[in-house]
Write a protein that binds this DNA or RNA. Structure first.
Lengths: 166, 166
DNA sequence: CTTGGAATGTCAACAAGGCTGACGTATTCT
DNA sequence: AGAATACGTCAGCCTTGTTGACATTCCAAG
């Protein structure tokens, strides 16, 4: 397994265990950087990463339901509810009863919520922009291709549902 | 900010907020896939991601000290110690007093620890290999370049220290 | 030799944020 | 009318992070 045989005409040395390990460790260290800046802002306000995720996806899909958010975030309604409760109580998120289906709650950001979202995504985008700029457009395309191939099928569907209409 | 101006001669459309957002969401969803397979193995054994990380880096740097592991993992000694204690008690990790400096503990995997490490990294590599294969060598190079640019400086040093000698 | 500081371990307490299970309520569908 | 759905909530448990305090062991400098 360590030295792959050439299966097709192209060089498959990039599939050696060593190359894969480097990718694994790169993901680990990069994800730390990826979350570092928002984490600082959040902890200063008494929030955590879970709040960030909720705020991000409510911003991306205004009026989304609790159920939909649950499936995007991959957490139980109890976990999500704990986060939403504080965000609603703090006036960052608004929950209004559905028109068609009154069982549903539609979630949107208030002005204060949108302001925090902006602060968080500005910080995260700054780092991402620096990384993109340093790596160049071709590298960015490859970056996204590998990440997409790494996702579970249901998460890839969520990813596409978000990006293809934004 | 939404529409970047052309700064150099090349097209900088890949630095738009929209492109950055897609990268951010890709990181989020991909990281879930990245950890999904090891997580299944771990929870079946009563362990968590923290145990995986400790086992991974002890495997990568046999004989490493607690201090070094702390700085790689970015957690406090108390957090790390709790994980190490269970791994040592379960016979997966061996802690032996240093020769030169007897205050230090040098950590290595036992045979059982190495077996679990193999199971975990096999699972994680399988997914990474599938993603690499689907994306192709050029994409993989870009993937690694962007991730590296995303790391904090001190983490990038750890990353290089690991990869440049393995 | 003594003492200061470094490396490690341990105890306690706490918080975030996952989880399961159970229950209640309103609403909608069949 | 009864089943299913969407949501909220309470209770309890787990992992994994945090601080703070304190003991031990050892190296190294004075």
């Amino acid at each position: 397994m360590q030295n792959q045989r050439i299966e097709t005409g192209q060089n498959l040395l990039f599939l050696t265990d060593d190359q894969l390990r480097k990718g694994i460790e790169a993901m680990f260290f990069a994800y730390r950087g990826f979350t570092a800046d928002p984490d600082r802002i959040l902890s200063a306000q008494g929030y955590g990463r879970a709040h960030h995720r909720a705020i991000h996806f409510i911003h991306r899909s205004p009026g989304t339901t609790v159920n939909n958010l649950m499936s995007i975030l991959g957490v139980t309604k109890q976990s999500l509810n704990r986060v939403l409760r504080t965000l609603i109580a703090d006036g960052l998120v608004l929950s209004r009863v559905g028109d068609r289906d009154k069982r549903e709650r539609h979630l949107t950001l208030t002005d204060a919520g949108a302001a925090l979202e902006r602060a968080l995504s500005d910080a995260q985008r700054d780092r991402m922009r620096a990384a993109y700029r340093a790596a160049g457009p071709a590298a960015v395309a490859g970056f996204r291709r590998v990440l997409e191939a790494m996702m579970d099928d249901d998460l890839r569907r969520h990813y596409h549902a978000l990006t293809e209409r934004g």
